[in-house]
Design a protein around this nucleic acid. Sequence first.
DNA 1: GCCAACGTTGGC
DNA 2: GCCAACGTTGGC
Length: 153
Amino acid sequence: MKYWLMKSEPEVFSIDDLAKSKNQTTYWDGVRNYQARNFLRDEIKIGDKVIFYHSNSEPPGAAGICEVVKEGYPDFTAFDPENHHYDPKSKMDSPTWFMVDIKLIKKFFHFVSIDEMRENKKLQTMKLLQRGNRLSVIPLTKQEYDEIVRLGK
DNA sequence: GCCAACGTTGGC
DNA sequence: GCCAACGTTGGC
């Protein structure tokens, strides 16, 4: 089993939106970065755990835990010219972009802000905290994942 | 294949 | 709203 951190802007889609979704499940659409795409297509498996991270918010931080319930399949929003994430390069018969489905396990009792993560000794090596990081799907070690979950309660 | 210009991300 | 960092694009 692997561990991941996925970023979402809560103005667009927050953990509360996920909690209100049918079966508390959503498809993770709109990833348009090749490195993140490779994770979604090739590496993220059913049962993997995901930290749901709020980016571009006040404050940014980890909001809860999810589980992968469907593995990489074509991101259909890329095929829809009306969609904000439309990409004419992605074809139905050879899709460029992929997504997975995730289901909410729980919203953290305590929101773990990025400041709190920066101050935590066990989380120093997280890619999330490294300078200039812009990846929206980030692998975590089990130790990092467990520590965030511990902080979030 | 280089690299300047441009667009996006995301913390602050 | 600013801007550093980074990825992508496109002219050459």
